[in-house]
């Protein structure tokens, strides 16, 4: 693991990153609770990839760039500007939900104000949409870079191939990220693809590609920073496979105990990216354990406030059902 200092990010940046990581974890836990109480119909979790998501988005100019996320990217979406209350509004189906105004299932993060593009549930379509968004930058002589993410299971779709092919042909300023957490719901990597690392596929498109450990903040950040720099210089797309964990079931509807062993789960818990990051913070004396505990208390309060505020928001009015079908 590289040190946090090696990222060459300032102390304030690293503390802000920690706050984002912790918010990602605590908000996710709250959404599970709300699901188990019956207030949120569905939740799909990003626990195990918070550090990777925070490192990834840290490499982008979130005030300039476009982001096409997938459903585990809650931490990334908040890093891009969406607030905890807005995420909560989405899960509770409130009109103020910036991703769909209560129309999509939870976890389909988006926000036009933050240049986070809406995505659907038939996975990997966003990879192709990203080529269009990136091509528009060339047509319009804009300098934004486009980030698109997906789970490793989705790389089996034809759209994955078509997107990489088009992006490479057109040298598009786009960064393709794969968050490989080992499972497509219950199907393990070995039943999903026959290559060792999905990053090997970059070669097939003459596209730089690498696999990084998502627990390693600095390595992940640097990989994406390099990709963004390539895109900015007109050198075209990059493929990055980030190795992450999935600490929970696939979703609130899934019982992973039936396909994962207790030993496997215990090992994952040992390797939980959030405490690992906290350990780095204190070892590198960026934050003391007491400061970390204080931040955690603050974050918990933030989550409580976001929950309360979002619960008070109105649901979309019934008469809006027919709005926005056509222009």
């Amino acid at each position: 693991m590289k040190t946090l200092a090696a990222s060459k990010l300032g102390k304030d940046d690293l503390i802000a990153t920690y706050r984002l990581i912790k918010l990602g974890r605590r908000l996710d836990e709250r959404l599970w609770q709300l699901n188990r109480i019956g207030k949120v119909a569905f939740h799909i979790s990003g626990q195990g990839s918070e550090v990777a998501q925070a490192a990834m988005i840290k490499a982008f100019n979130t005030k300039r760039d476009y982001f096409l996320p997938y459903y585990r990217d809650m931490t990334a979406a908040m890093g891009w500007g969406v607030t905890a209350e807005q995420i909560m509004a989405g899960s509770l189906g409130k009109a103020a939900d910036p991703s769909s105004h209560g129309r999509q299932m939870p976890n389909h993060y988006g926000s036009v104000a933050h240049r986070i593009v809406s995505f659907g549930s038939t996975v990997t379509t966003q990879y192709l949409l990203a080529t269009g968004v990136a091509y528009a930058a060339l047509l319009d002589h804009k300098d934004y870079v486009t980030l698109v993410t997906t789970g490793e299971g989705s790389t089996a779709q034809g759209d994955f191939h078509e997107a990489l092919n088009i992006a490479s042909i057109k040298k598009l300023p786009v960064v393709f990220a794969i968050e490989n957490n080992g499972y497509a719901i219950s199907t393990p990597n070995r039943e999903e693809f026959a290559v060792k690392q999905l990053a090997e596929r970059g070669k097939a498109y003459n596209m730089p590609a690498e696999a990084v450990d998502g627990h390693d903040f600095t390595a992940t950040y640097q990989a994406f920073a390099k990709a963004v720099s390539r895109a900015e210089k007109g050198k075209g797309p990059t493929l990055i496979e980030v190795m992450v964990d999935r600490l929970t079931g696939h979703s609130s509807d899934d019982n992973q105990n039936v396909y994962r062993s207790k030993e496997e789960m215990a090992a994952l818990k040992e390797n939980d990216n959030v405490p690992l990051f906290e350990k780095q913070l204190s070892e590198e004396k960026i934050l003391t354990p007491a400061e970390i505990a204080n931040i955690d208390a603050e974050i918990k309060e933030m989550v409580n406030q976001a929950t309360q505020a979002a619960e008070k928001l109105p649901a979309p009015a019934a008469e809006t059902l027919l709005d926005h079908v056509y222009a």
Partner: peptide, 20 residues
């Protein structure tokens, strides 16, 4: 507890669709 959002999208239309 308030209806979960998924329920809302499933159930609300039933009353509204009739005038769609």
């Amino acid at each position: 507890a308030p209806q979960a959002p998924e329920k809302v999208t499933e159930e609300t239309p039933a009353t509204v669709t009739q005038s769609n």
